[in-house]
Design a protein around this nucleic acid. Sequence first.
RNA 1: CGGGGCGUAGCGCAGCCUGGUUAGCGCGCCUGCCUUGGGAGCAGGAGGUCGAGUGUUCGAAUCACUCCGCCCCGACCA
Length: 591
Amino acid sequence: MRCRAVGSGRVIELSTTIRLHMRYSQLFLPTLKETPAEAEVVSHRLMLRAGFIRKLSAGVYTYLPYGLAALRRVEQIVREEMNRAGAQELLMPMVQPADLWKETGRYDKYGPELLRFVDRHERESCLGPTHEEVITDIVRRELHSYRDLPVNFYQIQSKFRDEIRPRFGLMRGREFVMKDAYSFDVSDEQAEASYMKMFEAYRRIFTRCGLNFRAVQADSGAIGGNFSHEFMVLAKTGEDTIVVCTACEYAANMEKAEVRMPATIEVEPMLDTEKVETPGKRKVESVCESLGIPPSRLIKTMIYLADGLPVAVLVRGDREVEEVKLKNLLQVADVELADDKQAFDATGVPTGYIGPVGLGLRVVADQEVALMRNAVTGANQKNYHLKNVNPGRDFQAEAFTDLRQITTDDPCPVCGGCLELTEGIEVGHIFKLGTSYSEKMQAMFQDSDGSEKPFVMGCYGIGVSRVVAAAIEQNHDDNGIIFPVPLAPFKAIILDLDPRDERIDGAAQDLYRGLTAKGIEVLLDDRDERPGAKFKDADLLGIPYRITVGKKYLQDGFVELRERKGGEVEELSPEQLLTVLPPRIAEAINR
RNA sequence: CGGGGCGUAGCGCAGCCUGGUUAGCGCGCCUGCCUUGGGAGCAGGAGGUCGAGUGUUCGAAUCACUCCGCCCCGACCA
């Protein structure tokens, strides 16, 4: 069987649709006036209040019709862009045999996040947290020739990861909807081309979703090169801190952001070391105060336990150690700041007076420390510090490298511009996998020269349900959600302020039919509620355009149009509204 | 898994410390009246194994122990 997976051939469209009742009185949309106590972050609170979701158990939620509709909006955009990029959709099983996972060694390695269980025949199984094994199995069975490549398969599916701590509603659930894609190529170069295609597709997806995001370089680790990116939505409640450059495109995870070595070196003659008494001065601040020096003249000595073994870590007094960088340098699984007792046990010196000079411990230092002249450090003796300490002359370190947290005072490592710190929500992650899975699973194809080669793989994830949460985190106000138009389940809502008044009700109904006929997804609030309740719900639900039919219509034949995200109320005749609104919505979607 | 906290009506909470009648309040829900431009008002009503179990006691929502569930903070990640 030969199949061309990518190409410009014609395709058929089978659209997935979600139907929502368009009359509020018929729609199951339970909104809440009060916030359930469990919800801490905005998106979680608003999703509960606006009737998106209800919790079944920790990290596991039911999507109610309105929430499902929002999810489908994101899915639709994802599908369109994945398809545009030449990927093909399939759907893999959620329950997977352990044997497959044992082939790659991940059955043991994956950890407790992988929910394992046995079926009635005592066969070991697991719930798929990701699908590299399954897709690689498919490909090795079905694809055998370089002529079959490249391919990229994706699915949109519920994943289960038994998270240590589910939190923030849909932001970190145990069950969540994910789009995962896997590419297979003949060579590294081709795989990189596939990667770039996905990078582009992701940019388009998140742009179309109306999100403010950045692609940040992620840990390229063993693979090397720039072939792992995380897509971060900038929002206050993000779980990661990221640094972004105000001048160029640079963005990086705080943990990984490289600090640029300062170009200028202070040239200052080295003075003789001198011991000074500093009784009771243990904090950087108090030492500096009593000696009359700025914290940048002090070398701070932190004792860490690296997989349980003590290491001294040096940074300038005004800097903070970045533990991820430290962990990577030391090549250990875990680093932890020693407490006072552990530090004393390791050095024989109370914390506050520890220093690198004559310290019988492993010492690693931040690169900046190497540039310091005549610095102050602990004297390794209670109540004493040393002045005029010089790296190289007075102590050695096994490494002088980037070990500290980047700050907004540092220049952008790419262009030298100014940096800003923001919180980010990771909504997508793409990386080049190489041949590790295909080799372990013996997934080979025959190349044009007749040789057998392992497929070169890439994998690409999007947290679809998380995108919905992120969109809300980024777009809300005190009154509720402000949906980006492309993600809004309904583009407009008509407030029928008095369904019992024939003229008002008639006008509302006419508008409803008129907009529907023009293909606008509109919600008609025909409930027997007081106006206040309707206004509140319309705001809470985040519907982009609100049309009010009330007294003003009786008086002068006008209905009101207002954008949810703010702005003026426009008074229009129903006819004007029907001509004005549809193009505006179309423009907002295609922007 | 470590640290902190919570579990009382659909939701938000009081009561518990100091044990003692029919366990309260607000919102929501039902009925009726009334009202209709930012979650109205009045009247009536339904709704509770007080998370579960064991113990202490004449008597437990209240005290003790065990378990379960949930939330928040840390290490993981879409």
